[in-house]
Write a protein that binds this DNA or RNA. Structure first.
Length: 550
RNA sequence: GCCCCUGUAGCUCAGGGGAUAGAGCAGCGGUUUCCUAAACCGUUGGUCGGAAGUUCGAUUCUUCCCAGGGGCGCCA
C-alpha cells in the first residue's frame, strides 16, 4: 500500500514537471537498508523518452518530491535511483489504518468476483490418500483461501474416478481378501491387485457386517456389491483424512454419476460435429494433433468402452457451464503429457484454452534419518496422508508443503518436521505469535492494557525496529494479490518468517510492558497487538493454528 | 529419441534485467536478577551448473551443453 502511494506521488510530480511517463516504472524496497525505505527506477526508465541523462532527470524529480513532508529524505544514488526515506508520521498514519482494519486487513476486491474453480487431489478411490495428495491438499486449499481473501469467488472440487477398471481391480482384491478370511488358499496375491492392508481391513469389516451372505450372490451382483462397498468406505476414509487436514471441498464430482447422465455421448457428438474424430482399428480417435498434441488419442476403445479422457473432458465442460471463467487444475508430475490433449479438445470445441490453467506439483521425497523412504503403491508400501498427520501434525505438514513453490521437488524431512525446536520454522513463527499473546496477558495482569488504543499513542512508535515492522505489515495486501495472480502460496511462509524474526528481535531488544511509562507500554502493545492480528490472518490463510501459548 | 521440472552457502531453499545475491539450519564465539532462551547478538561460508547471445547493465531473459528427478498405454 505504501508503494502505491509513493508511485502516485511520483506520477503527480512528473505531471507537474511536464515529464512524460509512458513507460512503466516501479517502486521497490531496496535490498540494502542504507539506500532508504523505498526506491524507484523511474528516472532511469524515463530518461530515454525525455532525452535526459538519468541522474539529471532524477535530480529534477527529487527537487519536486522533496516538497512533500511525508519523506524525511529523498536522494539520487547510483546510476539514477531515487531513494526515499519515509518520515515516521507517514508510517504511523499507515499503521493506524492497519490497526483499525483488524481481521479484515488485506481483504480486497482485487479479483472482482471472478469465478475460479480449483480442482485438486482427484485421487483414485482405490486407497488411502498419500503424501503427494497431501501436498496438493495444502497447496490447493491455501490458494483457495488467498483467492477468497483477495476478492475472487473460488470453489474447491474433487473429481472421483469411480468408473474405470481400477475400481474392478479393487473389488477383485477385496474378494480375494474375503476368501482368504474364510480360510481359502488364494496362493500368491496377484501383482495387479491392491496389496495395502486397508483392503484386509475392508474385508474384515464387510465380513463382520454380512458374513457369508456375500458369497450367496451371483458373481455379477457380488462384484457390484463389493465395488459399492469399497468405494463408499474409501471415499469416506479420504474425506476424513482431508477433514483432519482442514481441507473441505465445495464439491465432489463422481465420474460414474457423470457417465450415467449421458454427458459422455454428448461430448463424443460434440467432437464429431467439430469434425475431429475418426475410426481406426475398430476404435474411435480424437485428431488432437490438429490442435497441437503430438499424437492422436483414443476416445472409444475397440471393445466399445470409453477412455478416461472423455468423461474428464465432459467434467471440464460442466465447469464452464456452471459459470466458472478460470479453471485451475492442480496435477501431480506424472500427468503433464495429458495437457496437450485436453487443451486440444478445448480448442476443437471452440473454447479458449487459456481459461484452463494447469499447475504441476512436483514430486515429494520423504526422508527419514537421511535416507530416502521408498514408496510403492502396488506393493502397498506407501506413507499415507494419515501417517504423516499422525507423525508430524497438521500444522507442520501444511507448512512444509506450502513452503516450496509448485515446480520445486519437495524433500520432506520427517525428523525436521517433528522437531519442536529452532531448526523448525513452523515453531519459530508460532512461537512469535505465542510470545505476543503472553505479553498481552501480562499487560492485562499489570493493568496496563487499555480499553481502546488511542490515536495519540502513534507518535511513540518511532524506533527503527517499529517502523520496519509497520513497513512489513503494510506489504501484506500487495503480497496477497501477487500470490493470487501467480498462484504462488509459498510466498506466505517467507513473509511469515520475516515478520516473526522482526517480532523476536523487537522482543529481545525492548521491554514492552514497563512500569516506567504507561503510554510507551501501550503504544508498543498497540503495535504488537496489530502484528498478532496480521499473523493470525496469515496463519488462517495457511490453515495453520495460531497458538496463544506454547 | 521426445516432453516437463530442477541446478544459488556444508544442508534445505527464497529471490530476481540493475547499486554490496538473502533466510533458516549446521559450524564457531557470546547473552538469562527483566514480558516464554522454542529467543537474541556476533562470526565463518557463494566464480548464482557451464558456454555463447540480447542489453548501457544478466545470477535473472534466449539458445546450446552438462548433471539430477519425472513422464511418454486402446491405464487412470
Amino acid at each position: 500500500m505504501i508503494k502505491e502511494i509513493i508511485h502516485a506521488h511520483l506520477v503527480t510530480s512528473l505531471d507537474k514537471l511536464g515529464i512524460s511517463h509512458a513507460k512503466e516504472f516501479s517502486v521497490e524496497v531496496p535490498n540494502i537498508t542504507e539506500y532508504g525505505d523505498y526506491s524507484s527506477n523511474c528516472a532511469m526508465i524515463l530518461a530515454k523518452e525525455n532525452k535526459k541523462a538519468p541522474k539529471a532527470l532524477a535530480e529534477i524529480i527529487v527537487k519536486e518530491i522533496k516538497k512533500n513532508k511525508d519523506y524525511k529524505k529523498v536522494s539520487v544514488a547510483g546510476p539514477g535511483f531515487i531513494n526515499f526515506q519515509l518520515a515516521p508520521a507517514f508510517f504511523q498514519r499507515i499503521f493506524w489504518e492497519i490497526h483499525k482494519a483488524g481481521a479484515d486487513y488485506a481483504t480486497s476486491d482485487f479479483g472482482q468476483g471472478e469465478k475460479v474453480l480449483i480442482e485438486f487431489i482427484s485421487a483414485n478411490p482405490t486407497g488411502p490418500l498419500n503424501i503427494v495428495n497431501a501436498r496438493a491438499a495444502a497447496f490447493g486449499d491455501t490458494l483457495y483461501r488467498v483467492m477468497q481473501k483477495t476478492g475472487y469467488k473460488p470453489a474447491r472440487e474433487f473429481y472421483i474416478n469411480d468408473a474405470g477398471n481400477q475400481v474392478d481391480i479393487l473389488a477383485e482384491s477385496l474378494e480375494l481378501r474375503l476368501r482368504e478370511l474364510h480360510g481359502e488358499k488364494i496362493g500368491e496375491f496377484p501383482y495387479e491387485a491392491y496389496h495395502g492392508d486397508y483392503v484386509k481391513h475392508l474385508a474384515q469389516k464387510l465380513n463382520a457386517n454380512e458374513g457369508v451372505r456375500v458369497f450367496m450372490m451371483t458373481e455379477k451382483d457380488r462384484m457390484e456389491h463389493l465395488k459399492e462397498f469399497a468405494l463408499n468406505e474409501i471415499l469416506e476414509m479420504q474425506r476424513l483424512s482431508l477433514e483432519r487436514f482442514d481441507v473441505i471441498f465445495d464439491g465432489w464430482v463422481s465420474e460414474k454419476t457423470l457417465r450415467s447422465e449421458g454427458v459422455v455421448e454428448e461430448v463424443l457428438s460434440y467432437l464429431t460435429e467439430a469434425d475431429c474424430t475418426y475410426e481406426k482399428d475398430d476404435a474411435i480417435w480424437f485428431a488432437s494433433t490438429k490442435y497441437g498434441d503430438d499424437k492422436d488419442r483414443v476416445l472409444m476403445k475397440s471393445d466399445g468402452s470409453i477412455t478416461y479422457f472423455v468423461p474428464d473432458l465432459a467434467y471440464h465442460l460442466t465447469k464452464i457451464q456452471r459459470g466458472f471463467s478460470t479453471l485451475i487444475d492442480i496435477f501431480g508430475p506424472d500427468h503433464h503429457g495429458y495437457v496437450p490433449r485436453i487443451k486440444a479438445a478445448f480448442k476443437a470445441l471452440g473454447y479458449d484454452d487459456k481459461m484452463l490453467e494447469i499447475i504441476f506439483l512436483q514430486q515429494v521425497n520423504l526422508f527419514e534419518s537421511g535416507e530416502r523412504v521408498k514408496m510403492s503403491k502396488r506393493a502397498g508400501k506407501i506413507v499415507t496422508m494419515d501417517d504423516l498427520i499422525n507423525e508430524v501434525g497438521k500444522d507442520a505438514a501444511r507448512y512444509f508443503f506450502i513452503a516450496r513453490k509448485a515446480s520445486a521437488h519437495l524433500n520432506f524431512d520427517l525428523e525436521l518436521a517433528l522437531k519442536q525446536n529452532n531448526e523448525n520454522p513452523v515453531y519459530y513463527c508460532q512461537y512469535a505469535h505465542a510470545r505476543i499473546c503472553s505479553i498481552i496477558k501480562k499487560a492485562k495482569k499489570d493493568k496496563v492494557w487499555p480499553k481502546t488504543f488511542k490515536k495519540e499513542l502513534l507518535v511513540k512508535l518511532n524506533k527503527p525496529e517499529e517502523l520496519s515492522i509497520i513497513q512489513k505489515l503494510s506489504d501484506l495486501p500487495e503480497l496477497l494479490t501477487l500470490i493470487a495472480i501467480y498462484r504462488e502460496p509459498h510466498r506466505l511462509t517467507t513473509y511469515l518468517e520475516e515478520l516473526s524474526a522482526m517480532v523476536h528481535k523487537y522482543y529481545a531488544r525492548y521491554q514492552i510492558v514497563s512500569s516506567k511509562s504507561k503510554t510507551l507500554s501501550q503504544a508498543r502493545l498497540m503495535l504488537l497487538y496489530t502484528v498478532k492480528n496480521v499473523m493470525a490472518i496469515v496463519f488462517e490463510l495457511m490453515g495453520i493454528s495460531a497458538p496463544e501459548k506454547m
